[in-house]
Write a protein that binds this DNA or RNA. Structure first.
Length: 105
DNA sequence: GCGTTGACTGGAA
DNA sequence: TTTCCAGCCAACG
């Protein structure tokens, strides 16, 4: 069969799966873009940047180092859920405590 | 079909 | 520790 990644319907499915994984993040926890879509973390970001879906916990998705892609607005939402942050100048989530374990993904 | 852009990542300096 | 650079995949014009 055709070698290489299958596209078309598969891409639509991938986008749907990305949204499903983000919705599955429980309150008080986070996941990284790489955890959600390892093959193309930027795709996860691209989806979030374009999709305007009520009830989608986009703020629970952070970078691999715990830093926030959106900024102040995102930090506020995470703190409201009691997500632990590491001390320091830059606002970074403490992934040791808040990162969702792989087996739950 | 090609080049640019992006809510990324990991390793090097 | 922070900053910088190259690699990476997909979307867009």
């Amino acid at each position: 069969m055709g070698s290489g990644p299958r596209r078309d319907a598969a891409d639509v499915e991938a986008r749907r799966l990305i949204l499903a994984r983000i919705r599955a993040i429980p309150e008080g926890f986070v996941r990284t873009y790489g955890d959600i879509w390892p093959a193309a973390p930027r795709l996860a970001g691209s989806v979030l940047a374009s999709i305007d879906e009520p009830g989608l916990p986009w703020w629970r998705v952070v970078r691999s180092d715990g830093s926030l892609a959106v900024g102040e607005r995102q930090r506020r939402l995470l703190e409201d859920e009691a997500v632990p942050f590491r001390p320091g100048r830059a606002a970074r989530v403490d992934l040791r405590l808040a990162r969702l374990p792989p087996e739950l993904g």
